[in-house]
Write a protein that binds this DNA or RNA. Structure first.
Lengths: 240, 240
DNA sequence: GAGTGGTCTAGACCACGGT
DNA sequence: CCGTGGTCTAGACCACTCC
């Protein structure tokens, strides 16, 4: 993991910050001191600080220095887990949760005008359309409504859909998932939700809409994940 | 705006991408060509490309080049509005929406154990606690439940709360809002929600929890924004 | 005015993708 | 193998903060 200079500086600094080594001054050492300490270039030091800043641990002020952001046990849960593609957590992040998939429907269809409007796929191309219910610790918590471009992601079968499509995409097809764009909404529950999810008295769902791109820039997926209230959390970070 | 070299390169490239100049090859020119064209250094060109990539327009592949991500009118709404601190949009982003604030409650209190657990403020410090309902086009769409550290943000009055606290913080107190960390959840509606929001038949709310930091790294705010379903959208971008 | 991070240049070598 | 982006160095000047 620490093959790169900047990565190893980043990790050293992060450990120290979390251990509290810099919390008296609420500052990182200045760049020149870090350059000396790590016997490296300004480029590497600055790249390490950039990464800490992207994670929400520090904030750089021109002319003053690199400031530590206050962090307490409560605010830890606001910090981003980078490198995690899903970006979705359970409300109790420590509990490693049990996970089970039910395939509700599976078909191959051609994109018509309405579906094109919804999914941004071109009219006329073939897509796999599937619905899967995710049980978390036995509770029907999420329904995934997927559309995969069948030209870019060929050969999906019910068995693959039941196991892991993302495994199939990456390991078998060797397709690189480069970028995922998302929108989050809260929607009133539709029949597909009330029929498949353990909503209890709740009549709304969270709706995470994702479109995913391969490393040639082509959109290969449109997915809506409808999830029950009170269970899932998303993180965001805004810097000025 | 285009004082910096990299910023002006970024804006030129962005315009060209959106105009479709590069869409035949689905690639950006290679770094060396951009260096020549803009008579600048590799640093500036790479920083411009980095910004395009952070915005979700392109994706760099080592050994291959910089790939354009497909974009259609539908996928435009997934692209990030950088530089917008609020990050919250109406479902129809173009319509400049009408906005009205009702101050529901206003008090100054001391943080106790329970509130500290919730807000991450230290026990014993004074905070302003307020609730405000936001009417969007006449609909009671959002209730903001704010706690401001009264030592860092002193002198809030009901009038300020009714007008704009963020104006007061930035313009009057000259406090720099450096970083905002957020969590998004869907919660079952509580009494504070049913009493103050136009929920209609819905019995859930979206809950955006924000903590904000000044440029000394101190947390000055904890806010929960509860909003009605079907009206608001959040964007996210994940890169590999 | 001294200290500090932000921008920029010129150059080198490495790692990966495709031929 | 060649072309490409990723990492890294050494150095310069600028813009901002704080005393």
């Amino acid at each position: 993991m620490a093959n790169n200079t900047f990565e190893s500086i980043y990790q050293t600094l992060k450990k120290r910050i979390l251990k509290g080594d810099y919390s008296i001054k609420m500052r990182l050492p200045i760049e020149d001191d870090l350059i000396t300490e790590f016997s490296s270039s300004r480029y590497a030091v600055r790249k390490a600080i950039k990464k800490l800043s992207e994670e929400g641990l520090v904030y750089s002020v021109k002319g003053r220095g690199v400031v530590l952001l206050e962090h307490t046990p409560q605010t830890q849960q606001f910090n981003l887990n980078l490198g995690e593609l899903s970006g979705i957590h359970t409300a109790s992040p420590d509990a490693p949760f049990d996970y089970q998939t039910d395939l509700v429907s599976f078909e191959q269809i051609i994109v018509d005008q309405a579906l094109s409007q919804q999914t941004a796929f071109e009219v006329g191309i073939p897509v796999y359309a599937l619905k899967r219910v995710r049980k978390i610790n036995g509770t029907r918590a999420v329904i995934d409504i997927n559309y995969f471009n069948a030209q870019l992601i060929p050969g999906i079968t019910p068995k693959i859909a039941h196991d892991s499509i993302y495994n199939y995409i990456q390991k078998t097809l060797k397709v690189k998932i480069a970028v995922v764009k998302r929108m989050l909404r809260v929607d009133s529950a539709q029949s597909v939700d009330t029929e498949n999810l353990a909503l209890g008295k709740n009549n709304c769902v969270g709706n995470m809409i994702s479109i995913a791109f391969n490393d040639s820039g082509r959109q290969f997926e449109y997915t809506e994940s409808h999830f029950i209230p009170n269970e899932l959390v998303f993180n965001q970070l805004i810097r000025n």
